[in-house]
């Protein structure tokens, strides 16, 4: 379980990115974090694993106060938090397998990672995860030889290789086409269900968020302005989050993807059967 209390982040330039953000994420819950760009979504999830240092407030992961850890302890805490990135952030020139195994870096000593001699169970787990995300044939390829959707699957496998207790997911679909976006979102949610993993998904696409998340948190200028189930996300609530923004455009594009989605659902079933 993750609990965030009164989290505040002020950048050195004086910009206030987050103000008094508090919420709790119980085991197995998938939270969609929405809000206009610049609302502090990206800062918020980076404060959880302290890629960005919060100014005030606490972040607790299963009773461990992450905000108070020193560097060695912080590394051990980061092992328990998997992260998936917007532009995949794979190490392009390493193989797919090395990228997945890099999820174990926090667990192995330097010489083992340097010589690429990871323990047998780590390697077996990496193969199993690649199989799970449908890339078992690509283990020896270099990451920059894959398509966008495939790279994001590698990113998911890398995060799961850590055996995380929490997933932080930063705009997982921002560089993907609509069909692939849905496949990736479905995969993420399925995996969270299988493992009872809590996840915070930072996402700009409200329709995707509504479709896949158990709960939506809306950020506006660094403050939580909405917190509730996807069904409660009314027109009025969205205006509160996004201001004067026009909704119809976003919903229209969702309707256009309908056809693609039917196809993709069939594919997902096929994948499930294969497993």
């Amino acid at each position: 379980m993750l609990s965030v209390e009164k989290l505040t982040k002020v950048y050195r330039t004086g910009d206030k990115a987050l103000t008094d953000v508090s919420f709790e994420v119980p085991k197995g819950q998938v939270v969609g974090l929405i809000g206009p760009s610049g609302a502090g979504k990206s800062t918020l999830i980076r404060c959880v694993n302290r890629l960005v240092e919060p100014t005030e407030g606490t972040v607790r992961l299963n009773d461990l106060d992450v905000t108070r850890l020193r560097s060695g302890e912080l590394r051990r805490a980061r092992r328990r938090i998997g992260m998936i990135f917007q532009e995949y952030a794979l190490v392009e020139r390493l193989t797919v397998m090395e990228n997945v195994l890099s999820g174990r870096l926090g667990y192995v000593p330097f010489w083992r990672s340097f010589t690429r001699r990871f323990p047998g169970e780590d390697i077996a787990k990496a193969f199993r995860l690649l199989d799970r995300v449908g890339l078992s044939a690509h283990a020896d390829k270099r990451a920059d030889a894959l398509s966008g959707g495939q790279r994001q699957r590698v990113g998911i496998a890398r995060a799961l290789e850590q055996d995380p207790e929490l997933l932080l997911i930063d705009e997982p679909t921002a560089s993907l086409d609509p069909k692939t976006s849905r496949q990736i979102m479905r995969l993420i949610v399925e995996i969270c269900r299988e493992r009872g993993l809590p996840a915070i998904i930072n996402i700009h696409d409200v329709v995707l968020a509504q479709q896949f998340a158990d709960r939506i948190i809306g950020l506006q200028a660094g403050r939580v302005v909405f917190d509730g189930g996807p069904a409660m996300l009314t027109e009025e609530a969205l205006t509160r989050i996004y201001g004067e923004e026009d909704w119809t455009a976003m919903q229209q594009s969702a309707a256009e993807d309908e056809a693609a989605e039917a196809e993709e659902r069939a594919e997902a079933k096929k994948m499930m059967r294969a497993l």
Binding site: N49, L51, R75, R76, A77, R78, R79, R80, I81, G82, M83, F85, Q86, E87, A89, L90, V91, E92, S102, G103, R104, L105, G106, Y107, F110, S113, G155, R158, Q162
Partner: peptide, 12 residues
């Protein structure tokens, strides 16, 4: 971003 991603796994 690649550096950030590797650091986020808890790597030294």
């Amino acid at each position: 971003s690649q550096v950030e991603a590797v650091a986020a796994t808890g790597a030294s």
